[in-house]
Amino acid sequence: MRELNSTDISNVSGGAFSFSDYGQSLGLAIGNAVSSKVAEAASLLGKGIGNIFECKFIDAVNNMSTGIRGIISWAKSR
């Protein structure tokens, strides 16, 4: 059996899959379906939701609040 290198350790511990990256991509896709102007805000909201699953609560609050403010701003401007 061989010793794990840093790439192997990262992959095993979830480094190859990030909930925040997945949430950001999903939010961007949904945002683009609604409007290109809301896509960035939706991606931040999705990233914040992904941060919750990664237990990065401060980042989650920051990203989600920025995303929600962006979506509300977009909705008011319509």
Rank of each mutant, 00 (worst) to 15 (best):
M1R: 08
R2Y: 09
R2P: 07
T7Y: 04
T7C: 03
D8V: 13
S10H: 06
S10W: 06
V12T: 12
S13F: 12
S13Q: 15
S13D: 15
G14P: 00
G15A: 09
G15I: 07
F17P: 14
F17N: 14
F19Y: 02
S20H: 10
G23D: 08
Q24R: 05
Q24A: 14
S25Y: 07
S25L: 06
L28V: 01
A29I: 00
I30W: 00
I30Y: 03
I30G: 01
N32D: 02
N32I: 03
A33C: 08
A33T: 12
V34E: 07
V34M: 09
V34T: 10
S35F: 07
S35E: 15
S35N: 15
S36M: 06
K37R: 15
V38A: 11
A42I: 00
S43G: 06
S43Y: 00
G46V: 02
G46N: 03
K47F: 04
G48K: 04
G48M: 07
I49Q: 05
I49N: 06
I49G: 09
N51D: 04
N51F: 04
F53E: 09
C55P: 00
C55L: 07
K56D: 15
F57A: 12
F57Y: 12
F57H: 10
I58L: 11
V61T: 11
N62S: 13
N63W: 02
M64E: 09
M64C: 14
M64D: 15
M64F: 10
S65E: 02
T66W: 10
I68P: 08
R69D: 00
R69M: 00
R69V: 02
G70I: 08
I71M: 02
I71K: 00
I72E: 03
I72C: 08
S73F: 05
S73V: 03
A75N: 11
K76S: 15
S77M: 07
R78V: 11
R78A: 10
